[in-house]
């Protein structure tokens, strides 16, 4: 990453300094609520029924799923409305490209900043999950980079798209019809083999499923070399394609 993009990270950090209490608080409360309700509440029922999910106690199954899904939601949120703020509402990105910064530096810097934010969110999740007993393996630490990679694979293409938009009307639809179904059906709460046959390939195409599988390998300490490489390649591929599209669309938008 160029030093120019780091200046953008620095700016975001300065803005964050004014708002960090809220962000850190929600990064802590979100996992507590989700894991208490689903891991302990629902998980208690599942485990009482004598069942295990994919051979795991439900809390252990659902913790990495929620961890990766939280990273996705954080990154997707950052890639939509804040882009409209910078390009249109407050036009702060236009101020940036009047300096030595280039549009691609702005885009890359924001992606790096979101990666830092997802690192924070995923770390909080991991700590809370481990405290509740949802992370049996020390390899679980690797779930954080897995979640960050997953989040970036969402940020890159979504922010590439946002820069082509002149109103925010499509954004709630993307959240409701894109992000939310992925959240529910990407192996987060139940294994994808529970889905009807036709829906399974769709779930497997979801970047979130790859992120969830990676995170789950880490928190349970069970690695299958081939599938780990496969998941990483898919996520890196989506990230790279998205980044390329983003450098083009951001240049068109900010320096057209």
């Amino acid at each position: 990453m160029s030093t120019a993009a780091l200046r953008v990270v620095e700016r975001e950090a300065r803005v964050f300094r004014r708002l960090w209490r809220g962000t850190v608080f929600s990064a802590f409360v979100t996992p507590v609520l989700f894991l208490a309700a689903l891991g302990l509440g629902l998980g208690g029922l599942v485990d009482e029924g004598g069942g295990r999910v994919a051979g795991l106690p439900y809390l252990v199954f659902v913790t990495p799923g929620l961890l990766a899904a939280t990273a996705m939601q954080t990154a997707a949120g950052d890639a939509l409305w804040p882009v409209m703020v910078g390009t249109k509402w407050a036009r702060t990105f236009h101020a940036m490209v009047a300096t030595p910064l280039r549009p691609r530096d702005v885009y890359t810097g924001l992606m790096a900043w979101t990666a830092l934010r997802t690192t924070l969110a995923a770390t909080m999740f991991l700590i809370v999950g481990a405290a509740l007993g949802g992370v049996p393996s020390a390899w679980g630490l690797l779930a954080v980079p897995a979640a960050v990679l997953c989040g970036s694979a969402f940020f890159a293409p979504l922010a590439a798209y946002s820069a082509t938009q002149h109103t925010e009307v499509a954004f709630p639809l993307i959240m409701r019809l894109g992000v939310m179904p992925l959240f529910l059906f990407s192996g987060t709460f139940f294994p994808v083999d529970q889905l009807p046959g036709w829906a399974q390939p769709v779930a497997l195409a979801s970047p979130l499923w790859h992120g969830v599988e990676l995170a789950r390998s880490a928190t349970t300490g069970t690695f299958d070399g081939h599938s780990v490489i496969g998941h990483v390649l898919v996520l890196v591929g989506v990230l790279a394609l998205g980044w390329y599209a983003g450098t083009c669309s951001w240049t068109r938008r900010l320096a057209g």
Binding site: R7, R14, A90, T92, M96, P100
Partner: peptide, 20 residues
Amino acid sequence: TLDTELTVSDNLTIYGRYFG
């Protein structure tokens, strides 16, 4: 194109940092 949620002097600092 100011950062309206930040202070006056923060705006100058941030902008100066864009120039390194």
